[in-house]
Amino acid sequence: MNAPSSVIRRQVLDRVYAATRNAAGSVEQTVLPRDYIRRGALSAESRIELMIHRLREYDAEVTECAPEALPAVIVEQLKKSGRSIFAAPAGLPAEWLAPGFAWKVDRNLTTREIEEADGVVTACFCGVADSGTIVLHHTAAEGRRVLSLLPDWHLCILRASQVVETLPEYFSRCDQLPALVTRLVTWISGPSATADIEMTRIKGVHGPRFLHVILVRDQGAE
């Protein structure tokens, strides 16, 4: 009665190929105009300043620190958050797991267990200053997607050397990575938000309502 799926697949593809038979050029022939800004022009310092500025503009909180001070600053921020149970990806550096808090390290945590956490601490792959975006590729230190989603408070550790100025610079960094790394990607620009009611921007809907970034000044690494 109903055509088998392979027949429909062929039918759709045939229509598409027929529709584009007279189209301009093949993929190889087409040179795409990419005259937009690829590389940023800011100094390293201004780039970091911009990242911080843009993160704050979209309601993220930012704390700066020197590399050696990081574990202490994490403790400080966890305390300040007033929360006690934190989730952490399995690959998070051990020295980031501040003592004095309940840690749920993600070794196959259930959704319920993650939901019980008050907050989560993760690393990230990259920061894009132009849009104040943090990119997660969900590696061992960045955690599974659900981990940085359910807890209401997300503390993300971003190193200055991970910050690029423009979006295209992020993609150039991806070029140097095996495709596997970009199989799962989450870009985060501020906490979750909505403007569905009278275009009033409300911070915090279903995703974490609070995004906190520790920006580690490891400039020498550049």
Binding site: W187, I188, S192
Partner: peptide, 13 residues
Amino acid sequence: TGERMNPYTSLWT
């Protein structure tokens, strides 16, 4: 939405 970037973009494979 007149934002530099929307809060979340997800990609999966």
